[in-house]
């Protein structure tokens, strides 16, 4: 059982007439959790609520067993959480090392520790001698790294990362995602990765939460969501498959050709066993050479969730 890092019960948030969060319920375990959703789904709002930067209109959130809505607990939360904002918020005129050290000092580190630690985390995120340049002179990729470094400087157990790969080239994106994966898997951090990029989540996360219109429409372990789907199999045959395909369609199954001699079979009603298919193929003078259950991709699970076709939300195992 994983300890719970973040717990949210019935959280509501309005921006004027816009209902940004509609009773969000979440129990997020430790490890790396991907918060997925289209633009305007309420991802950033949720992160800000967790940091106490937004006041909820209803419901309750707990992060590191503290309530961000209470002013007395908000400061303690902010010492235990590292936040990487989406916006380009680096203070101009300062160098990266100065900014990261300043953030460390504001988090409560002594001056010398903050400077040493700033260099360590900047090393970790891969900024070389460029750390001495002014913030306004950095490329988008460097800015993202510096933003991650400032979130890490006080070594918080929980990291809230808002669109960390925004505007990055493929190489930079891979590098940053490797860092996020390392933090979650090897450094024992609780990472909440907020993004609309499915591949980022697939690459780094163990758990996924899908938000749509301010509501959780899907959540679960990534492995469960993308588990082998027994209802769909990829069939490979040699010889003329037209007769077999016709036969399967007559039985009510959905057949989608992939290429010559290969098709995806979605079985209707009771699933056909391998033996049934071998016999059916033999009857239609073809030889069955391959039978492979198809995995649901995260994209399929995500789209299904957004179209309200997904599996009923299941609480993540703790």
């Amino acid at each position: 059982m994983n300890p719970t890092a973040i717990e949210i019960r019935g959280l509501h948030k309005h921006y004027g007439s816009v209902h940004a969060l509609r009773g969000v319920h979440l129990v997020l375990p430790s490890g790396t959790v991907g918060l997925l959703g289209p633009n305007g789904a309420g991802k950033t709002t949720l992160l800000k609520l967790l940091l106490g930067m937004l006041a909820p209109d209803g419901g309750q959130a707990r992060i590191a067993d503290l309530d961000p809505a209470k002013a007395s607990e908000r400061l303690a939360i902010r010492q235990r959480v590292g936040y990487m904002p989406e916006s380009d918020c680096l203070v101009p005129g300062m160098s990266a090392v100065e900014l990261v050290a300043l953030m460390g000092r504001l988090a409560g580190m002594p001056r010398t520790d903050a400077m040493t630690r700033a260099h360590e985390v900047l090393d970790y995120v891969g900024t070389g001698e460029e750390r001495y340049r002014k913030n306004e002179e950095y490329s988008t990729g460097m800015k993202q790294r510096i933003k991650l470094a400032q979130a890490l400087v006080h070594d918080p157990p929980i990291l809230l990362l808002d669109e960390p790969t925004n505007g990055l080239d493929p190489k930079g994106r891979r590098f940053l995602l490797d860092l996020v994966a390392d933090l979650g898997r090897n450094q024992g951090k609780h990472v909440l990765l907020c993004t609309h990029l499915l591949r980022d989540v697939e690459r780094t996360c163990e758990h996924v939460v899908v938000l749509k219109g301010g509501q959780v429409v899907q959540q679960g372990d990534l492995a469960d969501l993308t588990a082998a789907n027994q209802a769909v199999v990829r069939v490979t045959v040699t010889g003329d498959s037209a007769g077999l395909v016709q036969h399967l369609r007559e039985q009510g199954s959905l057949v989608q050709p992939v290429r010559d001699g290969v098709f995806d079979l979605t079985m209707a009603g009771a699933p056909l066993t391998g033996d049934d298919l071998v016999l059916a193929a033999a009857r239609h003078r073809t030889v069955l050479t391959g039978l492979e259950p198809q995995r649901t991709t995260l994209e399929q699970a995500f789209l299904a969730a957004l179209e309200d076709r997904g599996v009923a939300p299941a609480e993540i195992s703790q």
Binding site: R78, P85, L106, A107
Partner: peptide
Amino acid sequence: AEDKRLQANLLYFARPVT
């Protein structure tokens, strides 16, 4: 004004700054 323009307040208030 510059903190507001750049949203640097998100960095400051993500720390124990009242």
